[in-house]
Amino acid sequence: MRKIKLDKSIFNDFYWLNEPEKYYFENELVIKTEPQTDFWQRTHYGFRNDNAPALLTDLEADFSFAAKFKFEPQTKYDQCGIMLRLDSENWIKISTEYENEEISRLGAVVTNLGYSDWATEDISSEINSVWYRVSKRGNDFLIENSFDGTNWSQMRITHLHQDFEEIKVGVYACSPKNSSFKAKIVEMNIDENHWEAK
């Protein structure tokens, strides 16, 4: 397992898509989200947004990528999590999206050929720290979450339709409405694939 050091040396391997105005390192990466930023394409809501910050690296072959997040959202849809990306119309994001003081939406958005879908599970908004892990096997992906970094629960198995040899992987944070919050990335790891073959 390769644990990613969360300091300025991260830019030896990672790069920004839509670099945020405010971020810093303090043994973790802190991103201050900007209002009206999001990743979403077309479905149901009709709009298209591709302007949120994501810190990404390029990976080939199969892998597992895990990251731990802490967050204190302020407004509906505030979110931070893992991003996997081919381009603006083919990507996956995994996060907890704030709904209100009682519930938030633990889930994943999968965007294929320019259309997003969103699969969710309600969790308590008192939860403000979550691990996410995604494991790649070809064009298929196993998406999991954990509240302790040890015991993992399956959220979804999904597929990207667009063929690729390399995919961008990393973390993101955004505030689709007119709000802002601090998203903290506490740990990031790249490992061999944890998803067992059939």
Rank of each mutant, 00 (worst) to 15 (best):
M1F: 05
R2F: 11
R2P: 01
D7A: 11
K8F: 14
N12I: 08
N12F: 12
F14E: 01
Y15K: 13
N18D: 09
N18P: 07
K22L: 11
Y24C: 08
Y24N: 07
N27R: 07
I31C: 06
I31E: 01
K32Y: 02
K32G: 02
W40M: 08
W40R: 06
R42F: 00
R42C: 03
H44V: 11
Y45R: 13
G46S: 03
R48P: 00
R48F: 13
N51L: 11
L56N: 11
T57L: 01
T57I: 05
L59I: 00
A61N: 08
S64T: 15
F65E: 02
A66L: 04
A66Y: 08
K68S: 12
E72T: 12
E72V: 11
P73V: 05
T75D: 14
K76L: 13
K76R: 13
Y77F: 15
I82A: 03
I82M: 00
M83K: 10
L84R: 02
R85S: 10
R85P: 09
E89M: 07
N90T: 03
K93F: 04
I94W: 04
N100R: 02
E101A: 09
E102L: 02
E102P: 00
I103F: 06
S104L: 02
A108Q: 01
L113N: 10
Y115K: 11
W118M: 06
W118F: 13
E121Y: 01
E121H: 09
I123E: 08
E126H: 12
E126N: 09
S129P: 03
W131R: 09
W131Q: 01
W131C: 09
R133W: 10
S135R: 08
S135Y: 02
K136T: 05
K136L: 06
G138K: 15
N139L: 08
F141P: 07
F141D: 00
E144F: 07
S146T: 10
W152A: 05
W152G: 02
R156F: 01
I157T: 12
I157M: 05
I157W: 03
L160A: 01
L160Q: 00
H161I: 04
E165D: 14
E166C: 10
V169H: 05
G170E: 04
G170M: 10
Y172C: 09
C174A: 14
K177S: 12
S179W: 05
K184I: 06
E187N: 14
M188L: 14
M188P: 12
I190V: 15
D191T: 05
D191K: 14
E192K: 13
N193E: 01
N193Q: 09
E196T: 11
E196K: 15
